[in-house]
Each structure stands twice: as structure tokens, then as C-alpha cells.
Design a protein around this nucleic acid. Structure first.
Lengths: 218, 218
DNA sequence: AACAATTAGTATGTCGACAATATAGCAGCA
DNA sequence: TGCTGCTATATTGTCGACATACTAATTGTT
């Protein structure tokens, strides 16, 4: 899954994305060791490329590296997921706040259109959990914040980890109808340029989502 | 300045820290291009080491890299500083909230001791802006959150950028007495385990700090 | 004179080999 | 038998050289 407009141009870019997705999708199991030589044969590139890819994965917190020892894929734990959602709540809350100030009318209209399509799908009974739609919703609000650091942190860092948890702990969860209502209220707050409310609603939205996942884990 | 307990063991580690500090302290000017060959002679290491160091700097958002073109030190702008403080407000607010829940009594006592020493210095007329003290204060609360992602984002990422702005836009600002009061109230909220209030006060504290800097820029 | 294309030059991307460090296994001793 | 120290092996860290892509200067054309 390519997020944003990351266009891999160099071999290291491509290998980074391949390796990352193999990890996120669970084809390389969490907690396992990453051998540079092994990976270099597997992906048919030199060790230097693999090293660069692993370095970037470390920056995303997807792998952990110890000097002179090697790199391991991070281990997934309930505690880790909670910490991740705490950061998400904080950052996406701020994103919603900023989006209420910085999104253009056009962007807001687009967002409402997306929400309407989402609603139609729910109405048509396709009310399985639409991850793509949900991601797209959050995606646009984060971009709407117009804050470079926020965007980068969430897309390059947090997002892939969240997806890794979703995939590997198998939560293609429900929450579709309630999530729709929450999304609607958030957009309304943004359209009203109510930054305070937008942040609060987004934080609650993510908190609910966290609670739902926590409940499923226990 | 070494933050946390990053112990450079490999040559790439050392070069990364040297290069980072040269940039943060302004010995390498903001916006300038980083030539790999040039740097490799300057720091007396191979180009591979320099490349790894630059990769890590890119992960910190201290340099920007374009494929097949090269890396540049980020340019400093008022807008960039504002965006940085927006992220700080969000993350450190959450850190204070979590610290109120997760800090041990001992850690809170230590924090109060630090605050007392800070107060004594202010009383003694050494009321120039104590950056080290201020940093140490925020440092402990961030650590007190016990949230790995939060800690890493702030220390490895945001912190050095903030310092870069401070150094290069020359703001060894005042705000020492008011900042002291704000710190005191934050610690009180944490000691009372009032997460809600701790977050709110921390966010206001950072907002005030941002406003003070903005005023100085215009 | 101004613009386009080609070419030379320089910087980045990639590679394979060597050096240094950690881990595991084995031998020797208490 | 259990522990300590050494050795061997395998993995990571580092390096210099080659391949490739961008940049800019030069030349030719309109």
C-alpha cells in the first residue's frame, strides 16, 4: 500500500517499501531477526541497499537495531498498541484543530463528498468495516492541517505501525456505523471552523477506537 | 549536547552526532547543501559513513534529501517554527497527561527538587534564562510519560530542531519568572494526579512560550 | 542574439571486499 | 560436573571503486 505520493526512484527506496510492507503485512513475522546477507539475496540487491532500508525502518520504529548485533522487527504488545494510540490521539487531535483553520472550502467540500459516499455504502448494506474509507478520511484531515511535521510523523511513522497491529492482531473490526457518525460530527466542526471542537471530537473518536480494540484484545 | 543516553559506539553514530551538532549550533549554515565527498574529507571518514549520518539527519527532519541530487540543511522560517511548536504543544501536552498517571512518587519528588533549585537560582538574582534547567524540566516530564514513541519523537526529532531555532534566531529569551510559575503549577497538577489539568497547563505553557518567541520575531 | 541539443563533468547511488565485533562451541581446569 | 577462557565462525561495520543520474557549459542552429 502506497500512502501519500512516495514515488520510489532509487533501489533503496523500492527495497525499503518492499521490506516495510512485508513486515507490516506479517510476511516477515514480528520480533524476528533481520539478517542483512539473507535479505540481500532475498531481494536481489547489495547489502548496502538492505542496510539503508533497515535504517529507514528504524526511523519509522518498525525495527530496532543494536550496534554490532543486528536489527529485529519490533514485537507487538497490547501495551505498545496503547502507547501508539495515545500518540495518535494527541497528533490527530491537533491535526483536526489545525484543519479547522487551514483547510480550504474546496477541501472541506471534498471531504463531505467522501463522507456521503461512505454513507451510501453503509446504507446499501455494505456495512463491513471500510478500512480504506476510514484511512482516507483521517488522511485528508491530517493533510488539511498543512503542518509538515504532523503529516510526516503520522504518515511515515505512526500509520504503518497502526496498520501492522490491525493486520497482525486481526482486527477488521466493526464500529462502522458509530464511526460514521463521529466522522460526520468532526467534519461539521471543521466546516464551522470550530477548531476547539474539532480537536475534541477527533480525540474522542480515536479514544473510542482504542477502547474498541482494547476490548477485543482482552 | 548529548541528550538522553545515546552512547555513540560506531563511527556512523559519532559522525551523526558531530554533524548534527554542527548544524544545530549553526557552524553549518541552515539551507546549505551537504556534499558527501566534502563532508567525508572534513570528518575523515568514508562516504558510506557520511551517507548513513545524513540518512539519520533526514529522519530527524534536520536535512532534506532529493534522490540523485543531494541533501540540504532545512531552511529556518517563522512558519516552520510555528509548526514545530504546534507539534510540541500536542505531544508535550499528552506527555504531561501521561506523566500525571505514570510518574512514580520518587520521580515527582525529584522533579519538585529540581524546581526548588530553579527557584533558588531565580531568587539569587541569576535570573538570566536558564535553558538547561528548562530543558531538564521538560525532559523529566516527557520521560515520565513512559511512552516510548512520545519520548523518541520529542528527543530525537523535535528537540534538536527547537534548539536549532533557539540558537540561530538568537533567543536566549527572558520569561524566566513566569515560566517558573507555570512549571510549578504543572508539577502540582502532576503530583495531584490530575492528568486533565496537567495537559492543559503544559499546553498553555508551550503556547505562551511560542507567543513570546513570535513576538520577538516580528 | 536567443534557444535547443549535445556533451563533459561532478555528485550521488550501488556494489563487492576487507576489518572489527559479537556469539557459539569446545577445550581445559577446578 | 560445572565453570572459565579461548577459538572459530558468522554477522555487522567500513571502505574504495565503479555505475548512473543530474547539472551546466558549449556548440550549433534559427
Amino acid at each position: 500500500m502506497l500512502l501519500g505520493n512516495e514515488k520510489p526512484v532509487t533501489a533503496a527506496d523500492k527495497t525499503f517499501i518492499l521490506l516495510r510492507d512485508d513486515i507490516v503485512e506479517g510476511r516477515i513475522v514480528a520480533g524476528s531477526k533481520l539478517s542483512e546477507t539473507e535479505l540481500s539475496t532475498k531481494y536481489a540487491v547489495s547489502r548496502a541497499i538492505i542496510r539503508e532500508a533497515i535504517n529507514r525502518l528504524e526511523a519509522c520504529h518498525i525495527v530496532e537495531r543494536k550496534a554490532n548485533v543486528g536489527a529485529r522487527v519490533v514485537a507487538l504488545s497490547p501495551q505498545g498498541l496503547i502507547e501508539l494510540y495515545q500518540v495518535r490521539e494527541s497528533l490527530e487531535g491537533m491535526a483536526a484543530r489545525l484543519a479547522a483553520v487551514n483547510m480550504t472550502h474546496e477541501e472541506i467540500d471534498d471531504l463531505m463528498g467522501l463522507l456521503q459516499r461512505h454513507f451510501d455504502e453503509v446504507k446499501d448494506g455494505q456495512s463491513y468495516y471500510q478500512e480504506a474509507g476510514d484511512v482516507d478520511f483521517h488522511y485528508r484531515i491530517i493533510l488539511g492541517s498543512k503542518n509538515k511535521h504532523l503529516i510526516s510523523m503520522l504518515f511515515d511513522g505512526i500509520y504503518h505501525l497502526v496498520r501492522m497491529y490491525r493486520v497482525q492482531l486481526g482486527m477488521a473490526g466493526p464500529r462502522v456505523t458509530t464511526a460514521y457518525d463521529e466522522h460526520k460530527h468532526i467534519v461539521k466542526a471543521i466546516a464551522n471552523r470550530d477548531a476547539e471542537l474539532a480537536e475534541m471530537l477527533m480525540r474522542r473518536h480515536i479514544m473510542y477506537s482504542k477502547n474498541s480494540i482494547e476490548a477485543k484484545l482482552s
